[in-house]
């Protein structure tokens, strides 16, 4: 029974983390899109590829996925 309770608790933690991670990634993606729109609207050149290379692997994968959709 104790083990069962622990499992439930662990599942809850994992579920929460999944939700938090997805919310964060969605927020970051949306901000990136908005930023890109505003950058183009203002006619500001891209700030070098350098900054982009520094992004985490997770977001890099995401942006690739986006590119395919487009």
């Amino acid at each position: 029974e104790d083990k069962y309770a622990v499992d439930i608790a662990n599942t809850a933690v994992v579920e929460k983390r999944k939700r938090v991670l997805n919310e964060w990634l969605a927020w970051v993606r949306k901000e990136k899109e908005l930023l890109e729109e505003e950058r183009q609207a203002l006619g500001i050149p891209e700030e070098g590829g350098e900054a982009d290379r520094l992004k985490t692997a997770v977001t890099a994968l995401d942006s690739k996925a986006d590119a395919v959709v487009e």
Binding site: V14, R17, K18, L21, L25, V58, L61
Partner: peptide
Amino acid sequence: MYEVEREQM
């Protein structure tokens, strides 16, 4: 890395 991050990757 957290397990959920690994999964996401």
